[in-house]
Write a protein that binds this DNA or RNA. Sequence first.
DNA 1: ATGAAAGCGCTAACAG
DNA 2: CTGTTAGCGCTTTCAT
Lengths: 332, 332
Amino acid sequence: MAVTIYDVAREANVSMATVSRVVNGNQNVKPATRKKVLECIERLGYRPNAVARGLASKRTTTVGVIVPDISKSYYAELSRGIADVATMYEYNIILSNSDKRTSREVELLEDHLGKQVDGLIFMSDSITEEIRHEMETANVPIVLAGTLGSGTNLPTVNIDHEQAAYEAVKKLIDNGHKRIAYVSGPLTRDINRLCKKVGYERAIKEAGLPIIEEYFIETDNTYDDAYEQWRKLSTMKERPTAIFAGNDEIAVGIMNGIRDDGFTVPTDIELICFQHTLLSRAVRPQLTAIVVPLYDLGAVSMRLLTKLMNGEEVEQMEVELPYRIEERQSTN
Amino acid sequence: MAVTIYDVAREANVSMATVSRVVNGNQNVKPATRKKVLECIERLGYRPNAVARGLASKRTTTVGVIVPDISKSYYAELSRGIADVATMYEYNIILSNSDKRTSREVELLEDHLGKQVDGLIFMSDSITEEIRHEMETANVPIVLAGTLGSGTNLPTVNIDHEQAAYEAVKKLIDNGHKRIAYVSGPLTRDINRLCKKVGYERAIKEAGLPIIEEYFIETDNTYDDAYEQWRKLSTMKERPTAIFAGNDEIAVGIMNGIRDDGFTVPTDIELICFQHTLLSRAVRPQLTAIVVPLYDLGAVSMRLLTKLMNGEEVEQMEVELPYRIEERQSTN
DNA sequence: ATGAAAGCGCTAACAG
DNA sequence: CTGTTAGCGCTTTCAT
């Protein structure tokens, strides 16, 4: 049996209340008493039981993080931001992978809530009706990190993907391109359908260029699929001269396809993408990219959550972080 | 106030013991009663409080995972393996980053233990005396994942890095190379000092070649540093003709250095490395690499932990997973 | 098959 | 400044 607060109290000849006070840093303890108690704690190797504490205080100092897939560098980076701020505010994190399956997301929400997390950070492609409903039953704050709230009025931290996509494509247009393809991730994802694609089309239209259906390519977001999909573009009579890619993994797949066909980037084809990983900088030529502040997205989300958990007034429930476009070697 | 087991009991006209039984799937409940209880649970929206349950049962169905840095794809991949098996056995995961700082590791161990995790998976560079001591105070099983036990007799899941390094270098030797450099991560890490370097030297010696001090380059394990360090190699009169890199991020840094200097891989210089990320396959030429089964390392660790937590007899406390060398384009 | 009752280890009034 | 006393919500004997 582990040593309990009661053992310490007995050993130190004080009540458990006093022990509790010194453990919790309550000032109402005579220094001498504190010292005595601390000694006993040390001697007995007492380690407060957070579960009992959680039950008694109704705070677990634990927050849930539901993420599509932690093995994806995008979410891993974001999670690190969350974790660092969590540590700063003395919260632990329960981390679960949803694979973006709604049924799993619901399960996890239920699960985390059952574990009495003090708050929750949620990441996904989109908030389905079911999820939204589930979230309403929660009695703790939930913030969406890098995730579209779409209609929910949930607190959110994100960047303006639509505008970022617009600017990226605009840049290609300014470089004189007329035939610009967009190689996207799955359109089932709100972020691709509602943001990146819309930004792309806005830039194209604004420049008075036609929206060409064939210039839109959907991939499953993997390097390998992107590499394959390049075929579609390469065999067109009116081959695009510039490509906007949904992320750098796609961009690298495309770029390798381009080069394996004997073309050169950026001479023959210019390339720009969203940067989610080291890939953008590690490949040659390095990719001109929209740098997404993943770590900050996580950190700010967690910071927002701490405020919400503390019942602090929060002015901005929808935080929009800045991004920047870093010009490298895949554009002129 | 949330609805409790007592509310359900009252509503269903049974005792809380009975409600507890149906919630926990105990068979000693008349089907009719079970049905009635289930209805009330549904109607009231009852959600069992895992904290109270944990306190009463002394099992939290939560395991701790202490990882150096989740944003590193190496650990992210491993963690995903852990998480999937954890889900399978209905455990949640508390995930914390240690940045490999011993003081932080001790803190986290203490912290997780306080949260009453049922078990712990630990990853780091090496187990210091302090950590080992801390681990001894734990009353739950701890397994080391992808981490050298070095003398502790803790359960461990890993690959034979020494042998893998040996085979990689051997391959270079078989390809006729006499001047083979080893570009390593920090030697402060057991895995580099005690495994990879030793394997490298074993292969060199076995081939009757001299161990040349200059051919050993230490980096901080980042792409950027590796890129810089290439200078040291490039300016040597007896420039190496083959390089063994501690991981693919290093390898890519080196490779880009090589190419920016106008040399060609593998024609001028052959390259082989440990594969930790997608990088190996995404760069051109693709890197010949020792494929480390990161996901499996995590999955098997967690599986082992479940056995330990169940008090099952475990025959092998030190599991060694197979690896393979995948020949790609950076070697002939 | 079901209920009563005693904790699990701690916090949080409330007294003094 | 310190002690007493209720719980927190659930599991778990032990009876019945």
